[in-house]
């Protein structure tokens, strides 16, 4: 059975996320703000807050999160992202997220040795089980540190 994460869309969280993507429109702030605003288009990224095993979250008794996960031999980057909106999520509803691995491929890189790409496809469904958003994330792992500076 595929693991499913419960993802409540909360108005306060939507406001914080809108601020973080520097959206200062009245939809989110002040006396004319929507009580149950539409979530910004990239809001489903905040699913990380609800994933119990997310390795980058600071935890008690751990000095710096993620060092084991990243290591110093190379780096994992977010290379590409695709969203397909069947409809848009709104504060006040709770979605269920299911992630599955997608394609994997290797490309020789110019700056950081071989690049290993891998896709994760996450489906967000509403309480009726209908698909709301499909999110495809492509990660790339480099063999060495890369920088353009």
């Amino acid at each position: 059975m595929k693991p499913t994460t419960r993802f409540p869309i909360e108005a306060g969280h939507v406001l914080l996320f809108a601020r973080a993507v520097l959206d200062d429109r009245a939809d989110y702030y002040g006396p004319t703000a929507a009580l149950l605003p539409v979530a910004p288009p990239t809001f489903t990224q905040a699913l990380m807050h609800f994933q119990s095993d997310f390795e980058m979250r600071p935890r008690a008794g751990q000095l710096a999160p993620g060092i084991d996960a990243i290591g110093s031999r190379g780096t994992v980057f977010h290379a590409e992202q695709r969203f397909h909106y069947h409809r848009h999520a709104r504060a006040g509803e709770t979605l269920s997220a299911t992630s599955l691995p997608g394609r994997t491929w290797i490309k020789p890189g110019r700056r950081g040795g071989n690049l290993t790409f891998s896709e994760v496809v996450t489906e967000f469904r509403d309480e009726a089980g209908d698909l709301v958003i499909t999110s495809t994330s492509v990660r790339v792992e480099t063999e060495r540190v890369v920088s353009d500076d």
């Binding site: 996320f17 809108a18 973080a20 993507v21 520097l22 959206d23 429109r25 939809d27 605003p37 539409v38 910004p40 288009p41 990239t42 990224q45 590409e80 992202q81 695709r82 969203f83 397909h84 909106y85 409809r87 848009h88």
Partner: peptide, 22 residues
């Protein structure tokens, strides 16, 4: 990409996107 999402929302309104890639 989130900053681009904000620009798209300013231009086209909330909830208007069908797809969005980067």
């Amino acid at each position: 990409m989130g900053l681009m999402g904000t620009l798209l929302a300013r231009l086209f309104g909330d909830g208007a996107l069908l797809t969005f890639t980067g």
